[in-house]
Design a protein around this nucleic acid. Structure first.
Length: 673
DNA sequence: GATCCTCGAGTTCG
DNA sequence: CTCGAGGATC
């Protein structure tokens, strides 16, 4: 038993050493921080349970270290400490209780809440207001001298105070902060790389670290780094007793302090704020991996002292990791209803952001090539704002040569038709209109919500109907017989009855929904509504000229041509005639206006409303003469906000657009219910 | 010709 | 939700 632990501990030590080297010396880690943490914690646990296995050279026995050999070393005036971590509200409460036991009975604590910036820690020294030295964190006691590079960072003042009317600069001030790329700057940097045909940077944090440790500070100067300062390591000539005062003081001196930092009177207020932070995380212009909670009273904090390497007065609340690395074991090809091909990555299952991910979109082959992703690569998976995981890029360092490039297929995997890439387009498509996969996707779209909305007819049912040869196109849905369906597995009387009732109901959908369902390229619900209102019947639309369609406001020449072409296609016409013969509604009804109280107003809906669905809210607004659009802009009159709103609410505040609730809307239209 | 706005298409897991 | 591209507007 002990033998197993001994060999496992040795293995872990060796792995950790290697990763420390990759991370700190090469700035090119092959695993994510979270994975490193896991290995580290496993080793720590073995060593705690079997102290005899602890070796003096174990990675657990030394503080973090980012020293490289190329820089002279600077000694920090006081050790740069790390923080202990919390992963739940319980951890935080336990932390406070432990602290209160160490303090006189009845002590009340207030706290600051700051984002935990995911960058590179630096320590900057000012003497009589002049920046004299800057060092990396290093091992906490010694750091690399990166003064020349830090001086190129525009948000680091070379002289303080920056404003004349600020407090005078103290004799000596040593501040600690974080250097990082803002998301937009990192993206811009990568765009530049792409334009120059160079490989893209995968990870903002490591790139920032590599940039600060550039030997040639002229290169550093071309990279738009940002720095936030959040604490005073040492000072002569100024005394500050509260963390919050410290932040305000730093701000007054002209430093950037971590955005959205606040002071709260009690830990319970902080705990309440955490969900907000988690949801806001992805909307920030910078990477954060948690929040930092600090005891506001610095005298109490120093009284609490340190436990191991960590001060007791502060703690980091870490968000679940949103990044992980895993192996790309395959690529499958998806064909959409328009024929567009999207490659999907098949991954070794990996836990990231709270769920296990096995698939991730690779978007298009252009991107695959730009990122140089190869089959067999170890890739970094990220799950951010949109919750949908995507492949950030490969970790080139761990290739063993067996990786193979990913190319678009020569022929469609479903119909063997040669794949083409239309001129000037990013996408590859299967041009075969009769491609079984395309037909399937088209029918799937036809019956979906927003189109014909046939309940009880999901993708699985559609697939079965096509496979059994019961339908060959959208039109056949309305000529189905119930009897053969009952023969099938899992299709009982009740299910079939429901399905046929839905199909019957679909014959009476508004004209706009029928037009949407046809699946004309570039025509969704909004354009379909325009067409329905303008032409009143399918026949009018079918015989309309390109010029006539182009003349409609909101439709330009490209869409007009696409619509015209669709109706000229013999196959499409055949399907349309089937639908007509089946008795589908092909005329627009006069809209019964419920009122015109909202005429001229534009609404945007965000979040979950208390009682209405988004569709219902849209209907209420439109029936009173208002308009609903998807993005917030200056022209938006009101943003209708529900529970857990997205970034649109922030945008609205930014633009000064009024935010209303469902109740406000009801009042506006004079609804009594 | 540039800029702003809007629409459509595609996206994963439980 | 986000991105790319079409359309409108200046």
């Amino acid at each position: 038993m002990t033998v197993d632990f001994a060999s496992r501990a040795a293995e872990l030590r060796e792995q950790l050493q290697y990763h420390i080297y990759r991370y700190n010396v090469l700035s090119d880690p092959v695993i994510t921080d979270a994975e490193y943490d896991l290995l580290y914690r496993e080793l720590l646990q073995i060593e705690q349970e079997h102290p005899e296995l602890l070796t003096p050279d174990s990675p657990t026995q030394r503080a973090g270290n980012d020293l490289s050999e190329d820089f002279p070393k600077l000694r920090h005036p006081a050790p740069i400490l790390s923080l202990s971590n919390a992963f739940s509200a319980e951890d935080l409460t336990a932390w406070e209780e432990r602290n209160l036991k160490l303090l006189p009975a009845g002590t009340k604590l207030d706290y600051t809440l700051e984002p935990k910036l995911d960058g590179l820690t630096i320590v900057i020294t000012y003497e009589n207001g002049i920046l004299t030295r800057a060092a990396t964190r290093g091992n906490g006691e010694l750091g690399d001298d990166v003064t020349a590079n830090v001086k190129t960072i525009r948000t680091v003042p070379l002289r303080i105070p920056v404003h004349k009317d600020g407090p005078p600069a103290p004799e000596r001030l040593v501040v600690r902060g974080e250097v990082m790329f803002l998301k937009e700057h990192f993206e811009a940097l990568n765009r530049r790389q792409a334009e120059a045909g160079l490989p893209l940077y995968v990870n903002a944090r490591n790139t920032a670290s590599g940039t600060v440790k550039q030997k040639d500070s002229r290169i550093t100067a071309t990279r738009p780094l940002t720095a936030y300062l959040y604490s005073i390591v040492e000072s002569v000539g100024v005394t500050i007793n509260k963390q919050w005062d410290m932040l305000e003081y730093l701000r007054d001196m002209g430093f950037h302090i971590p955005p959205e930092s606040h002071l709260y009177p009690a830990l319970s207020d902080i705990i309440q704020q955490i969900p907000t932070w988690e949801s806001r995380r992805n909307q920030l212009n910078l990477e954060i991996d948690g929040v930092v909670i600090k005891t506001n009273d610095l005298l109490i904090a120093s009284e609490l002292g340190v436990s191991g390497k960590d001060p007791r007065g502060a703690i980091a609340y870490k968000f679940p990791a949103q990044e992980a690395s895993t192996k790309l074991i395959g690529v499958t090809v998806n064909i959409g209803r328009t024929g567009k091909i999207t490659p999907t990555a098949q991954l070794d299952p990996v836990f990231v952001g709270g769920v296990t991910v096995v698939n991730a979109s690779l978007h298009n082959y252009d991107l695959v090539e730009k990122l140089d992703i190869r089959l067999g690569d170890t890739v970094i998976i990220k799950r951010s704002g949109d919750v949908i995981p995507y492949v950030v890029g490969p970790i080139v360092g761990v290739r063993d040569g067996s990786e193979t490039p990913i190319r678009p297929p020569e022929t469609c995997p479903f119909c063997q038709t040669p794949i083409i890439q239309p001129e000037g387009m990013v996408d590859y498509i299967c041009p075969n209109l009769a491609c079984p996969e395309r037909v399937f996707r088209k029918v799937e779209f036809f019956v979906s919500r927003g189109a014909m909305d046939i309940e009880g007819m999901g993708p699985q049912t559609v697939k079965t109907l096509i496979d059994k040869g019961f339908i060959a196109d959208e039109g056949d849905i309305f000529y189905l017989n119930p009897e053969p369906l009952l023969e099938l597995d899992k299709y009982g009387q009740k299910k079939v009855d429901n399905l046929f009732a839905s199909i019957e109901a679909a014959k009476h959908r508004p004209l706009s929904q029928l037009i949407t369902a046809l699946g004309v390229d570039g025509v969704g619900g909004t354009i379909a509504e325009l067409l329905a209102r303008h032409y009143i019947s399918i026949d009018n639309l079918m015989s309309a000229s390109v010029e006539s369609i182009d003349a409609i406001e909101g439709i330009g020449p490209i869409l007009a041509q696409s619509i015209y072409d669709w109706f000229q296609n013999p196959h499409n016409r055949k399907v349309l005639e089937k639908l007509r013969a089946a008795g589908l509604n092909m005329r627009a009804e006069e809209k019964v206006a419920a009122g015109d109280g909202l005429t001229g107003l534009t609404f945007v809906i965000t979040g979950t409303l208390p009682t209405l669905s988004r569709d219902q809210a849209t209907e209420i607004i439109e029936s009173h003469g208002g308009k609903v659009s998807s993005g917030v802009s200056k022209k938006t009159s009101y943003v209708l906000m529900g529970e857990s709103p997205g970034s649109k609410a922030d945008k609205a505040r930014e633009l000064g657009v009024s935010i209303i609730s469902e109740e406000d809307l009801r009042k506006m239209v004079g609804d009594q219910t």
